[in-house]
């Protein structure tokens, strides 16, 4: 397995282009959460010429809808949700300067192309590891669309959040590569 690479947000192009499919990374800094419903509202805001709840430039969006925090904790279980549902929205945000998405599963060829064209990374996190990933989230604050409950946009501060590069800026695709290697 490859060496572990530490990344701090906001991400810069020079850090991103070095990343290759299968690289294990530990992400620290601020990241933002959004799922289907929040993405829909963000894209509608853009279409109306309204500002987004946060500036996406250089940022990472984590596709997650956490469970409620238990007393004394900043967040509940917080593993990734399936990313393909964000296919219709992700390219628009990447074009605006979004540098990373964290989720699970495949995304579209369009997203893959946008990762190359605009230099962005699609990271994978381990789905169903909600308790373990929550331990790497130091704080969580709802910053928009509170009425969406678990789907509200949250600003998270993470420390050594473990992820793997699924789509890099060179057209690589971890799912395809992995499958080729182990398919009989």
């Amino acid at each position: 397995m490859s060496e572990i690479i530490r990344l701090t947000t906001p991400l810069k192009d020079e850090d991103i282009v070095k990343l290759k499919v299968g690289d294990n990374v530990l992400i620290s800094g601020v990241i933002y959460t959004a799922r289907d419903a929040a993405h829909k509202r963000m894209i509608e805001a853009l279409e109306k010429g309204e500002p987004l709840p946060f500036d996406v430039k250089g940022q990472i969006i984590y596709y997650v809808g956490p469970s409620p925090a238990r007393p004394g904790r900043s967040i509940g279980a917080a593993g990734p949700t399936t990313s393909y549902r964000m296919n219709p929205y992700a390219p628009k945000l990447i074009a605006l300067g979004l540098k990373g998405m964290i989720g699970k599963g495949k995304m579209s060829d369009e997203v893959k192309e946008y990762c190359q064209k605009y230099k962005a990374i699609y990271f994978g996190a381990v789905g169903g590891a909600g308790a373990l990933l929550a331990e790497r989230i130091k704080s969580a604050e709802v910053i928009a669309y509170e009425d969406l409950g678990p789907e509200a946009v949250r600003k998270l501060v993470v420390e050594d959040f473990p992820a793997i590069v699924v789509y890099d800026t060179h057209g690589g695709d971890l799912e395809e590569m992995g499958k080729l290697q182990y398919r009989e």
Binding site: V64, G65, P66, S67, R70, R73, I75, G76, A77, A78, G79, T81, V126, G127, G128, A129, G130, A131, L132, L133, A134, E135, P150, P162
Partner: peptide
């Protein structure tokens, strides 16, 4: 390994196994 460790943490009551309950 992470999935197994996660099950242990959930059993200790840190958080549910998965956010999708």
């Amino acid at each position: 390994k992470m999935i197994i460790e996660n099950a242990d943490l959930a059993r200790e009551g840190v958080a549910p196994i998965c956010q999708d309950c």
